[in-house]
Computed example of a mutant assay.
Amino acid sequence: MVGGVRVETRHTGTDTLDEPVLTTIGRDAFSIYVKLIQVLYPPKGGNRDLLKEWDLWGPLVLCLMLGIILSINAPATQSLGVFTSVVVIIAVGSLVVTVQAKLLGGRVSFFQGLCVLGYCVAPLDIAALVSTFVRLIYVRIPVALAAWAWCVWASVNFLDGTKIEPQRILLAVYPLLLFYFILAWMIIIQ
């Protein structure tokens, strides 16, 4: 009872308050690794149980990594603008796609959507890293387009698991195509 109101808490059975910091960091790093593996090779329909335990650390790291890689390759006068653009595009794009999935009847929480869309940026990080060392446009274009297709494929596999009606799935996929294509285009023109 708190102030005359009965408060029920849900206990998961694990007490992490007194565990060492390295244990917490290790557990979180392993969780990020498992989710990255799911993005790099997503199962059909997405793993809903894994995504119930959403986090924003992995997407934040992937977003910052893409922004840093692209800003390093940009001219000095444009590097801050490139970094800011990448962070804003990922944040706003994830927000818009998640809200649209919810409006289309998808059974996904807001932070689950942000988590998945953030993790799906991982192939673009790989493409940006390759483009850093290989400056030939004939290599950058196919690598960036392959990463774009990979991001969309991983995201669509997740959307299949959100129970959006089949006739509405194209409405959810179109913003994904645009969202990841803008980032892929930034990699191509860097």
Results as ranks from 00 to 15, higher is better:
V97P: 04
D49F: 13
T9V: 11
D15C: 01
L66M: 13
G4T: 08
L159C: 11
F111G: 02
S109I: 03
K52F: 02
E165Q: 12
F110N: 04
K52D: 05
Q167T: 15
L50P: 00
L22W: 09
P20L: 06
V39E: 09
D28F: 05
G3D: 14
Q78G: 05
G13P: 06
G93L: 08
T16H: 00
G93K: 02
L60T: 13
W148S: 01
G67Y: 14
S155H: 14
V130Q: 06
Y180V: 01
L62E: 04
V82S: 12
I126H: 04
P20F: 02
L62K: 08
T23D: 09
L104R: 04
P75M: 00
L178E: 12
A128T: 07
L114N: 10
V121D: 06
I25V: 00
R10C: 10
A184E: 07
A76I: 15
K52V: 06
V87C: 10
D160G: 01
V61Y: 04
I141F: 06
Y33Q: 09
W150A: 00
V87H: 05
F181G: 07
D160P: 00
L80T: 11
R107K: 11
A144K: 06
L176R: 05
Q190F: 07
V116C: 04
W57I: 13
L177N: 11
L171M: 14
V152C: 09
C63S: 10
T162F: 12
P20Q: 07
R140D: 07
L145K: 04
L129N: 03
V92S: 07
D28N: 13
A149K: 07
R168A: 13
F111L: 12
L136A: 07
D15N: 03
L136V: 09
A154T: 12
Y41P: 01
K35H: 11
S31T: 03
T132Y: 11
C63V: 11
W54F: 12
V92P: 05
L104G: 04
L17A: 12
G3Y: 02
W148E: 00
I25E: 08
L103D: 07
V39L: 07
V108E: 09
G93I: 07
T162Y: 15
M65L: 15
I69T: 12
V99Q: 13
V97F: 04
L170R: 13
A147R: 12
A146P: 04
V121K: 06
Y138S: 08
P142R: 06
E165T: 09
V82Q: 07
V61R: 02
T84I: 15
A122T: 09
V34E: 11
M186K: 01
L170T: 15
D28G: 07
G26E: 00
A128R: 01
F83M: 01
D160R: 15
Q167H: 15
A149S: 11
